[in-house]
Amino acid sequence: MPAPADPAATAIDLALGFAIPAQDARGRFARIGPTLDAILAAHAYPPRLEALLAEALVLTALFGTTLKDENGQMTLQAQTEGGVVDLLVCDYRAGALRGYLQFDADRFAEAPADPSLFALFGQGYLAITFDQAVTGERYQGIVPLEGGSLAAAAEAYFAQSEQIPSLVRVAIAGGAGLPCVAGGMLVQHLPGGEAGRDRLHARIDHGQWAHVSALAATIKANELTDPALPLDTLVWRLFHEEDEVRLLGETALGKGCRCDPVHIASVLARFPAEERAAMADADGIIGVDCAFCARTFPVSLASLAAAGGEPT
């Protein structure tokens, strides 16, 4: 592995992949700051729920940037039964992140100052979905929301749904009115070799994974969230004694909501005129809400009729 890049460079709103061929391991770092602030600014969540969404967005960046299909989409969704949070949704496509959550304000007011994952979600579950744009294939894994964090639940996802030993770490800095930075690390033991071989999780000898996971576990929270610390420096610090570490390239991350007025109008145009009229208010305006960016897009019945389905 070459020496890390200029330490004075700002490393934020980025993801970086790497591989350690001799140890059958791969990994990824992600760090988001201005993108995270832009997403959170659209909502007025309490600090604890801001941190929860920040954790989910970092996980989404870590997992989404593993997609080989540039136009594919990865969605992380957590739903609850009897918890404070009713729904949490984040997704990734082509470097763009978005996310939101719905919660019961009364239940949150009654919760402890630092509620546990169980208090937040109750008997909830975590669903991770990969949609491949090129092939149209979809893969989804679902696991219970157990453990002390979403990161712990994500580790369970890889162990149960993917059957790949994984180490996931997430750290959050700032928030509560201050600029927020969230960083994460995903390190995994790759399935063994050619098709037909046993997957590595089923083998007795876990020496390679024990070695790699022990090194990866030394990562510190402040290293994950320090925007002045290049991501390749983190790889260097953890694995510089390995014979070969391959950097797989950086991915720029940004806020990206796909609510487009023209697309919204084209969807509304598919409804019969009487149904569109029923959706409109007294002024003939249909308000279409986007939960991700907390905006309402007004579309008038007159503009739909005049433009054949698209606003003027």
Rank of each mutant, 00 (worst) to 15 (best):
H263K: 13
G141S: 07
P2S: 13
G33V: 09
R28S: 11
P47N: 10
R199G: 01
D205W: 07
F108W: 10
A96W: 02
A173T: 07
E250S: 15
P21V: 09
I264H: 01
T66Y: 00
A127Q: 14
A61C: 06
V85P: 06
A127C: 09
E250R: 15
L301W: 12
A5D: 15
E242I: 04
D37C: 06
T60V: 08
F18Y: 15
P191G: 01
I12P: 00
A182M: 11
R295P: 00
V288S: 05
G72Q: 10
N222A: 12
A105G: 00
L62Q: 11
L304F: 04
S266R: 15
L120P: 04
Y45M: 10
A221R: 05
T60H: 04
R237S: 11
G141C: 08
L76M: 14
L268C: 08
L49H: 12
T65A: 12
G33W: 07
I219A: 07
R270C: 10
S300C: 03
A127H: 06
G124Q: 06
F271W: 09
A15I: 08
Q102H: 06
V84P: 01
M279N: 05
F121C: 10
P2C: 04
F29E: 06
A228L: 14
R48D: 14
R169G: 11
D281V: 03
Q163H: 07
V168T: 08
V212E: 10
V143P: 09
Q77G: 05
G254C: 08
C90H: 01
L36K: 04
Q132T: 15
D69M: 08
A151L: 03
L167Y: 15
L304S: 02
T10S: 08
G193Q: 13
